[in-house]
Nucleic acid binder design. Sequence first.
DNA 1: TATTGTTATACTCTATAACTATA
DNA 2: TATAGTTATAGAGTATAACAATA
Lengths: 174, 174
Amino acid sequence: MTDQYSAATRPVGRALVRQARPHAPTTPRPETPGADLGRLTRHLGYLARRTQIWIFQDFIRTLAEVDIRTAQYSILIVIEANPGLSQAVLSQTLGIERARLVHLLDGLEARKFVQRRRSISDRRSHALSLTAQGRSALARIKALADEHEQRIVRRLGRKSYKTLLRHLAVFAYG
Amino acid sequence: MTDQYSAATRPVGRALVRQARPHAPTTPRPETPGADLGRLTRHLGYLARRTQIWIFQDFIRTLAEVDIRTAQYSILIVIEANPGLSQAVLSQTLGIERARLVHLLDGLEARKFVQRRRSISDRRSHALSLTAQGRSALARIKALADEHEQRIVRRLGRKSYKTLLRHLAVFAYG
DNA sequence: TATTGTTATACTCTATAACTATA
DNA sequence: TATAGTTATAGAGTATAACAATA
């Protein structure tokens, strides 16, 4: 499912609001809420959701120029770190449904960022790898992702940022 | 949009896996990933996303018996804290699109948890409030939500939990 | 029999536009 | 003109089932 406590996305830069891009942020802003949130502010899930939305909005805006969104980014990074891995393992690693992964990889393959080759050891599975073009694109993509991350660091302060990175790790691995 | 770095939901209790409930968790598990996540573990957005998914799964499972999901819960709580507020303000407060809010309120009204009355001051808007039945249901709902929250506290440890609550607040308000 | 990748379907949520009734 | 609530539609993401090829 991935339901929501609150939901929605947000415009930060005004230049991008009301843009042609489908699903670009335009919605009600989380900040300075018009009414009392009650006990929601005592739910970690609510805060995690608002945080995730805020960060993803910034990520998407920052990487709009290379037309890469979060799921695509995570796929490129994991393939880079594990060349030759199968779709099944990639699906398991990122928690993306294998059915959905098919379409995401179709898109990245059409853009010549990713290659699917038949595995020699198990001919049912595909060995995934980045193309030269994919590696080259990824350099720029990572630079933009770093820019994005630095914006978050500035927003939180380095100390708070580090603290969060450390304490949230339990949910992502280990 | 609300795109994703990684995505997906997860079964925690095995009893509920492969259940009839639509969109119940069944997907690949984040924990013990099969491959290297690379720099993803250094992105706060990735960690926030995995955290949100983990927590929402637990919330949905815990409140399945009262058939309340995260968005519905947040609406009930904010109406309770701000009786008489309008849909516009509720939308702004929670960051839920007003178009979507209409359907969510339709459902809660059909269950007699929520009431829409014409505002006297501005006849365009609705004054929202809980019904007696809604208040009574909310007592049970809150108890289950507290149970859920305590499970997160146990998972993280109270100190880590408190730290996260404090540091994530910046994204949700202020 | 079980797994890999694929296709298909249904449901949820997000983004937008257009409409009505009020202001 | 503008705003509140509503309706409708399209795009993204999630959950499932079923199928072909392979193990």
